[in-house]
């Protein structure tokens, strides 16, 4: 049995108004750090999967990300890293 560590980010789709992002945009502008920026926010998950091979583990992660971590109408996910734990 191997251990695979996935790091996943979920975020609101770009076309949906993101109030948290807007707050950051506004404060950055007010502090004159930058006048032109776009901020999106999301959540970070670190998931350990115990499986014999990477392919199976990948399938499980796809399913978890699609069905539990996100609602496809409003959110997207991105697997930002996969690591085999030794």
């Amino acid at each position: 049995m191997k251990t695979f560590i996935y790091r996943i980010i979920t975020k609101l789709k770009a076309e949906i108004k993101n109030p948290q992002g807007e707050v950051v945009e506004n404060i950055v502008k007010r502090l004159s750090i930058s006048s032109d920026l776009k901020v999106n926010t999301g959540k970070f998950y670190e998931i350990k999967i115990f499986d014999d091979n990477l392919e199976n583990a990948n399938k499980k992660i796809e399913k978890i990300s699609k069905e539990i971590l996100t609602n496809p109408l409003i959110e997207t996910f991105e697997i930002i890293s996969i690591e085999e734990y030794r």
């Binding site: 609101l12 949906i16 108004k17 109030p19 948290q20 707050v23 609602n71 109408l73 409003i74």
Partner: peptide
Amino acid sequence: LGALLENENQ
């Protein structure tokens, strides 16, 4: 149909 998002004032 649809989804519910965090309130605008968070």
